[in-house]
């Protein structure tokens, strides 16, 4: 399968500050990709680079084989729902659909109308009067009815209450399946994405910390719990992601292909949230023993 997004040594800086650097990823088509990371990790920057809102400072990026945002054809292939799901406050719901129909050659008017009706949005209502959840749904409808091959969503559920969040993500998953759509969405809450993503990218500190299919990542990572000892004494094929210590016990999150044979260690499965948090926290291990000492 072809890649929906390929980036080589992609970087973007604002002034002197790097928002994203040395980003090299290759996302295959047909996934719902969750882009996770703490606030300010560079998620929005990566998504804006992918949709052509921003130009890279260094490196290159190609989306569905083309330069992002360059031509009407490229724009037609990629849908983008921006952070806070902006809509025109003065335009009605129906006028938003008309806007979509006028500006997109592949517009699916029947699907848009059907979705609006199913969501219970009143076509004559002004978008400025919609609730946050309704507005997000309207923005998603615009993104979907454009019939893109890749739909990018930047923190689409950040301002929604838990119920609206669930409904929004549910709708997104159904649409992704129905239209065989690749989806790339970001959130700083793992729990939002856990339910619908089958591929994750973890960004922290403006770099990619981890990227891959959820199943494979979960299979390759374990939490090892055992008597307290230093990470140097773990087997060589165990790559330590994060470490935690109490007086008597050490807990490591490791990546390994080999099963654990040391009876002193108890290996347990990680949840996606544990794994993502371990990678966001990875710097503590990279910085070595000094951190270990401080933590005691």
């Amino acid at each position: 399968m072809t890649a929906v997004l390929e980036a080589q040594a992609l970087g973007r800086k604002y002034g002197k500050r790097w928002a994203l650097r040395e980003c090299t990823i290759d996302i295959p088509a047909g996934h719902v990709v969750g882009l996770m990371g703490p606030n300010g990790a560079g998620k929005t920057t990566l998504l804006k680079l992918a949709s052509g809102q921003l130009e890279p400072s260094t490196g290159g990026i190609s989306v569905l084989g083309g330069r992002p945002g360059d031509t009407p054809a490229q724009l037609a292939k990629v849908g983008f729902v921006a952070q806070d799901t902006p809509v025109y406050a003065g335009l009605t719901v129906a006028e938003h659909l008309r806007l979509g129909a006028r500006l997109n050659p592949r517009w699916d008017a029947a699907m848009a109308r059907e979705r609006i009706a199913r969501l219970g949005l009143v076509p004559a209502q002004r978008a400025g009067k919609l609730s946050g959840g309704q507005r997000a749904q309207l923005a998603l409808t615009l993104g979907l009815a454009k019939r893109p091959e890749l739909l990018i969503l930047d923190e689409p559920v950040a301002s929604l209450d838990p119920l609206a969040r669930r409904e929004f993500l549910q709708g997104l998953r159904e649409a992704a399946v129905a239209h065989r759509l690749s989806v790339l969405l970001s959130s700083h809450l793992v729990s939002d994405l856990e339910r619908i993503c089958d591929y994750v990218i973890v960004l922290a500190d403006s770099r990619v910390q981890m990227a891959g299919e959820v199943d494979q990542l979960l299979a390759a990572h374990h939490r090892l719990t055992g008597p307290r000892r230093d990470p140097d004494r773990l087997p060589a094929d165990q790559h330590v992601i994060s470490a935690g210590h109490t007086e008597r016990q050490s807990t490591y999150v490791v990546r390994t292909d080999a099963p654990n044979h040391d009876p002193a260690w108890t290996a347990t499965q990680l949840s996606l949230e544990d794994l993502v948090l371990a990678y966001m926290d990875k710097r503590t291990v990279d910085n070595g023993r000094a951190v270990l000492e401080v933590r005691r």
Binding site: Q53, L75, A76, Q83, P86, Y88, G100, L103, P105
Partner: peptide, 17 residues
């Protein structure tokens, strides 16, 4: 100010147009 440029720039027409 309303962020709607991000909506309209991601329809299938270029920003220049």
């Amino acid at each position: 100010e309303a962020g709607t440029h991000l909506l309209v720039w991601n329809q299938s027409i270029t920003r220049g147009r």
